[in-house]
């Protein structure tokens, strides 16, 4: 009885994504569908309620010229890449306390990986990023 419960618990723990484990591989096609959750506020080529996502990778947080960032985002010492986006998109308000991005985040690591894989391609696509 006890050992069965323990085995179950261990299996559950093993299934949890550990901080250092390799992130799941992202599927950009599914990622594009997930981006539908962002389009009330964002688009690739234009600043809207949130800043544009074109040119996101390698960009310092809070650095799109002319966009009205929160002081928190403007001050954040973050450069956007797979790793930093993975953390931010899990819980924006935890990673950047005081952010105006009032969005709880994407809980599922696979969904985050898919979204980030798509963002990586789309945010540097010449076709999508020429306004």
């Amino acid at each position: 009885m006890k050992s069965a419960a323990l085995a179950l618990l261990l299996a559950a723990v093993a299934a949890l994504p550990s901080g250092s484990a390799a992130a799941p591989t992202g599927d950009p096609t599914h990622g594009e569908e997930i981006y539908a959750r962002c389009v009330a506020c964002h688009s690739l080529a234009y600043d809207r309620t949130g800043p544009r996502h074109c040119g996101l990778f390698g960009r310092r947080a809070g650095s799109v010229p002319g966009f009205g960032y929160s002081p928190a985002m403007a001050r954040a010492a973050i450069v956007w890449n797979e790793k930093t986006l993975e953390r931010f998109l899990a819980s924006p308000a935890t990673v950047v306390p005081g952010t105006t991005m009032g969005y709880a985040g994407i809980a599922d690591p696979q969904e985050r990986a898919d979204l980030i894989a798509w963002l990586r391609l789309a945010s540097r696509s010449a076709e999508r990023c020429t306004p």
């Binding site: 539908a36 959750r37 506020c41 009032g102 969005y103």
Partner: peptide, 15 residues
């Protein structure tokens, strides 16, 4: 836009 708005409010509710 409306679909995005649903997600946006859904993301706001727990915060």
């Amino acid at each position: 836009l409306e679909r995005g708005a649903v997600s946006a409010y859904l993301g706001a509710v727990p915060l």
